[in-house]
Simulated assay, not measured.
Amino acid sequence: MTYTSIWIAFAFVLIALLLSLWQRLGLEKEIAVGTIRSTLQLLAIGYVLHFVFHSDSILFILLLIAMMIAVASWNAASKAKKLRGIFGRIALSLALTELVTMGLLVTLGLVSPTPQYLIPMSGMIIGSSMIVCSLFLTHMNREVETSRGEIEALLCLGATTRQAVQIVLKRAVKASMIPTFDTMKTIGLVQLPGMMTGMIIAGASPIEAVRYQILIMLSFSSSAAVSAVLISMLSYRLWFTRDSMLHS
């Protein structure tokens, strides 16, 4: 694909802008900023990956993965700005999820420990886990507010913070994982995933592309569960004060 083709593709953004103006949705700024940021970010990461792939340095690989975790944590933490220390807990959850998932993939010989495999797959795992963490925080905030009376009653009866919030915590964890498994149920029937589609467009055999996509989706199931459980265990205390009372 040439740069001319990319410029032509901006016509799709123009359609979105015109529809927003026509319906007075007020999304023109978000569409423009999102388009510019995504384009510049993708171009930048393209050159960075080109450099890292050719350098074949483990240090650059680790730095790039650390950057992915930091950006993903910052984005997920924006869903719960009132919770002090949530950024660090999300970062730890993502780092451990990445370590467990990629560690198993490499140890079991499912992927080669080279930049061409480690970086793209790490990006997909971290991105998927980031969405899980974001959904957990969103649902947890809603569940705590909805069940505030029930939680405070349990605390008054002598329950620990963990006991008081246990049911709410389970609902938030479950809600954060559902989109991942719903996607797995319809993949290949409703949508053709990006990795598989990219490989096919690049000339790979559809069968080979499907095998890689199955590997990715199965690893997503693990990473979703690990990240959801980790963030719940590490963060639930943030909704309480030091005196074990719910924050107002």
Rank of each mutant, 00 (worst) to 15 (best):
M1H: 07
S5I: 05
I8V: 02
A11K: 10
I15K: 13
L17H: 06
L27A: 04
E28W: 07
K29T: 06
K29C: 11
E30G: 04
V33Y: 08
G34Q: 11
S38V: 11
S38P: 03
S38Y: 14
T39V: 15
L42D: 04
L43R: 03
L43M: 15
H50Y: 09
H50E: 12
S55K: 13
I58P: 12
I61V: 06
L62E: 01
A70T: 09
A70C: 02
S73W: 01
W74S: 15
W74Q: 13
A80H: 04
R84P: 04
F87G: 09
A91L: 14
A91N: 07
L94E: 01
L94I: 05
L96A: 14
E98I: 10
V100D: 07
V106L: 03
V106N: 05
V106K: 07
G109C: 07
L110C: 03
L110E: 01
P113E: 14
P115H: 08
P115R: 07
P120I: 15
G123K: 00
M124E: 09
S128F: 07
S129V: 08
S134T: 12
H139A: 15
T146C: 03
A153I: 11
L154C: 13
C156Y: 04
T160R: 06
L169D: 03
K174F: 10
K174L: 14
S176A: 15
I178H: 08
M195F: 11
M195W: 12
M196P: 01
I200D: 03
A204S: 10
A204W: 14
P206M: 12
E208F: 09
Y212N: 04
I214E: 09
S221K: 02
S222W: 03
S222M: 11
A224T: 14
R237D: 13
L238H: 09
F240C: 05
D243G: 06
M245F: 08
L246K: 02
